[in-house]
Nucleic acid binder design. Sequence first.
DNA 1: TTGAAAGCGCTAACAC
DNA 2: GTGTTAGCGCTTTCAA
Lengths: 322, 322
Amino acid sequence: MTKNHVTMKDVAKKARVTTQTVSRALSGGSVHPETQRRILKIAEQLGYVKNSSASALRSGRAKVVAVLYDDPRNLFFPLITDFLQENLQREGYIILTMAVRKPRMDMETYNLSLSQNVSGIISYLEPTEEFDGAISGKNIPMLLLGRHTESVNFDSVEFDDFSGGVLAAERLIDHDGCKNVLYVTENLAISCLKRRLDGFESVLENKSDVRFGICEACDVIEKLDKLNLENSLPDGVFCFNDMTAMKVLNWYDSRKIPAPKVMGFDNISQEVLLPCQLTSVGSDKCELAKTAVGILIDRMRGNDGERIRKTIPVFLAEGTTA
Amino acid sequence: MTKNHVTMKDVAKKARVTTQTVSRALSGGSVHPETQRRILKIAEQLGYVKNSSASALRSGRAKVVAVLYDDPRNLFFPLITDFLQENLQREGYIILTMAVRKPRMDMETYNLSLSQNVSGIISYLEPTEEFDGAISGKNIPMLLLGRHTESVNFDSVEFDDFSGGVLAAERLIDHDGCKNVLYVTENLAISCLKRRLDGFESVLENKSDVRFGICEACDVIEKLDKLNLENSLPDGVFCFNDMTAMKVLNWYDSRKIPAPKVMGFDNISQEVLLPCQLTSVGSDKCELAKTAVGILIDRMRGNDGERIRKTIPVFLAEGTTA
DNA sequence: TTGAAAGCGCTAACAC
DNA sequence: GTGTTAGCGCTTTCAA
């Protein structure tokens, strides 16, 4: 096997300097401007590309941020990830996205990131208590996005989930006058989902005339079928995310039953035009990403201060129109 | 800074062997079964995680595959990527997804992958000629997914785009009886999109009674507005992908104009339930991913044979129902 | 089956 | 501003 890649050594030889100088020239250390220009030119000529494995090994940190989420079919994640990437690549980081198929962060997932020498983790996965205990003291910065935790091992940037629930309930009940509401959610052990529900229920408190049912997203089809048979379909549905709202609308559409008011969460129609107007609880995704990246980068640079909790405000969003 | 990670050296010391033995024990080399058990146990106890940077540096190959695509808002990509991941992680590879904002593969994008020491590239980006010339001879395996190329530097797994175009046209014109068809596409310099159009037009050949217009996806809203003013809205629309089809449906929905027959391509509703029944040209995504990964892994293992071209059959898919 | 030695390409630390 | 030296953690190669 013949060596078929250009290293700093090659550049250094041609530029008649040491590899150290090349390293500095490329990473913005203190080098004579003239020398630097020469080195950059030669590097360019030879087609030099930095070996990030070597760089990461030596410096102890890869310029890689792991982004962890659970559902590869939720468009919300690639949308947010794209905003994250935009902010991270400005600082020279690349993103390692990992769709793991579990809602909680555990040791296995963590180790996978660790083995890649990532310098930071952004996770949509709420940590388990065991995990939280196991990693305490490790020094790879982790930030929880859109999820809540009490742990001191994570920073977090979350939505104002409680208010989101309130907004949804006010919309469906006070504004649209719904009297028979179905709330579709996932695992309520995920605390931010619990908070949405809490917010929603807080509006219901003095409204005994409103029927209220809860159902798991995975069971929603059976649930609707059942309600349909019983002739008690809801006149308002709130779904914990837009993808589930689409699923619900699909149920109505495919059965040719006129859809009631259906609301979602995440406002993905801000970025993607959906075939129908879906009212949703939205937030500034760009701001969310920017905030998260800002905090994480600060941590990766060594800021070891108190953990940070930011809450991103939410708003009611009508479906977006072309 | 105190060392806060466990290395092979630590494991080796505790197991009273050398690091080489540890390395072999972990990578399945020839080690005494007894020794191996002991080593694995100790590694587990100490919480050892392999440093992939060191591994990649030494061996010259990271167990990383770069997946390149252009549009982070197209749900098709995360869906396929998920299938790719499923197949790749079985072989110990992880995926580096990179959403670059250009439809073509160029040197910059390539170098970014290169600097990560990736051992293979799966790209939805058609290579430019310059790029193709520049990399010839480099030995990092590349596979083009869903795109066509004549280059001998890439393997490719593509859809049968021509047939896809034919199926769509037959459906809209022969089956649905459309007489005024709008074809919405992106950059026709992308050869697979050109082929879809060719397939579509081949059906139109002897049908002079069918009006046929073409429009760019980015202009489709203006186009529809204009046609609407002229009172000549199409009775059938074919879109080069499902996301664009949704955009078109959004236009109709938001203006309260009854939608005509609208078709898409990619059949994302196989994985995601959309709020309406969208007829689409689909294919077996799982098969696509499996085929692609199979070829790439073979290459990464050193198979240096002739370029491989696979074509995945397409079919007509009705919208999926909950 | 195991060990010893070397070195992948880069950068930290220090010297000049 | 530049060079020297050393070594990150792993795997390859060769020897025992």
